[in-house]
Amino acid sequence: MTARGVVLLALLLAAAPAAGQVASFAVTGDAIAAPLEGRVGNAARGAAVVRNRETANCLICHSIPDATERFMGEVGPPLAGVGARLTPGQIRLRLVDPTLLNPAAAMPAYHRVDGLANVDPRWRGRPVLSAQEIEDVVAYLATLGD
C-alpha cells in the first residue's frame, strides 16, 4: 500500500466510530428486555431520529400519527398504536434486528453489522443507529399508545 493509501485509511478509520460498536444483548422470547448498554432513551430525540430522512429514514416505509408529515411509506405497518401493541423489549428487538424474529423480514436491522453483503464502503462495519439512538427510538415508539 502507498503512503497515501495508509494516510487515507487512517483517516477513514478515524472518521468512522470505533469498531465493535454494536452493543451485546440477550434475546428472551421475541424481545430484548434490557436497554442496550443500560442507556436511558429520550422520546423527543427518538422522534427526531424517526423523522430524519438521512439516517434512520423510518418514514420511507412507515407512517406515524402526525398529519404534518407528508409522503409516508406503506411498506411496513403504521406505527400508530405500536406502543400499545408491543412492549419496549419487543420494539427493541424489532429495531436491532428483525430477522432474529422472522428471517424473511423486509425491515432493515438497525443495530447490526455482521452478515451483511456488499455494504457501501462508507457504512461498512457501522450500524445504522447507535445504541443510544435505538434507546431513544424505543422511548419514542413506546409513547405511541392508543
Binding site: 420511507i60 416505509c61 409522503f71 409516508m72 411509506g73 406503506e74 411498506v75 430477522t99 423486509a106 432493515p108 436491522a109 447490526r112 451483511l116 453483503a117 456488499n118 455494504v119 457501501d120 457504512w123 457501522r126 445504522v128
Partner: peptide, 19 residues
C-alpha cells in the same frame, strides 16, 4: 447493503406500495 434488502423484497413483494 447496510439496509439488508434484496431487489425482490421491493420489486416483487412490495410493488404497488408507497416508499
Amino acid at each position: 447493503g447496510q439496509l439488508n434488502l434484496s431487489c425482490g423484497q421491493c420489486h416483487d413483494d412490495n410493488a404497488g406500495r408507497r416508499l
